[in-house]
Design a protein around this nucleic acid. Structure first.
Lengths: 153, 153
DNA sequence: TATTGTTATACTCTATAACTATA
DNA sequence: TATAGTTATAGAGTATAACAATA
């Protein structure tokens, strides 16, 4: 360990560099799916792939957005014919969301394209470096999730 | 090094976890600045802090967005009285952008809030772990910048 | 009363295309 | 012709607040 990093420098580095990484992912998604998907749309589709029949609230929790936000995201996906929305007969307030066949095809296409693009970007890194990245991602996501006490909004 | 990580697994981890980290940063910024700042606004202000008198094109390059996008971001900052926009007398196509005193105060306030929030989030990590994160961020940003051949758009 | 989901409203980011002014 | 910047347009994310329907 060469240099001692402060939380402040770490925060600074995140602010400076993370947006570029996100942009990289976003642009890849736009290029490798037709119609183009946004990151939240992509995440919604993969969530519904893993959890067929999920409710709107479950989507909102997974994305960590308000129900209003999730509603408009889902609404656009329904409009594009990628998600189907039905009423739950037993719980009539609830909504049952599932991928349409077209949504399934699209998410598979997008996942493959995004993975290929990312793999290309990571080519040339050593196994050690890849490991460093994986560990860092894991650390970061757990820290921001369990979050500081007195956390979100 | 315990496990051998493939680029594919690394890509997967990034897509799953990065959005949450970005959301963490975004919300912190909203809560710790008044008026609330978006991430691109924050980055623009810090860039102008480091590069007083920069042009719109320089801002666009730093943010990695089109000039049209940078123009509207700057326009809002000017509207909020955080950035001043003047003509360059020697190069009349060019724009000279600088922080206003209010913009300077705000960015300092936002940086402090972000630092505190990030420090809280990173509490409990060892110096080694912080270092791992910093190295990973650096690796990632350089890889997506120099990018895969046949890169952006 | 509490929960689920929607709608209205308002703001921001973002790109493409077309444009003006300057060099 | 090429560059700097703006504007028009379009679509997406996001939150808050108010609301309807259901439990």
């Amino acid at each position: 360990m060469a240099v001692r990093i402060t939380p402040e420098e770490c925060a600074q580095a995140l602010m400076e560099s993370l947006p570029a990484v996100m942009r990289f992912l976003r642009r890849g998604m736009r290029r490798h799916s037709n119609p183009a998907l946004s990151v939240p749309q992509y995440r919604t589709l993969t969530f519904l792939h893993r959890h067929p029949g999920a409710s709107l609230t479950q989507v909102a929790v997974d994305l960590d957005v308000t129900r209003a936000t999730a509603s408009s995201i889902v609404n656009r996906l329904v409009g594009h014919g990628l998600v189907s929305r039905a009423d739950d007969p037993h719980e009539r307030r609830r909504t049952v969301l599932t991928l349409t066949p077209r949504g399934l095809r699209l998410i598979q296409q997008a996942q493959e394209g995004t993975r290929a693009r990312m793999q290309a970007a990571l080519t040339g890194l050593t196994a050690d470096e890849l490991h460093t990245i994986a560990v860092a991602i894991d650390l970061l996501s757990r820290q921001v999730k369990d979050g500081p006490p007195g956390g979100e909004s």
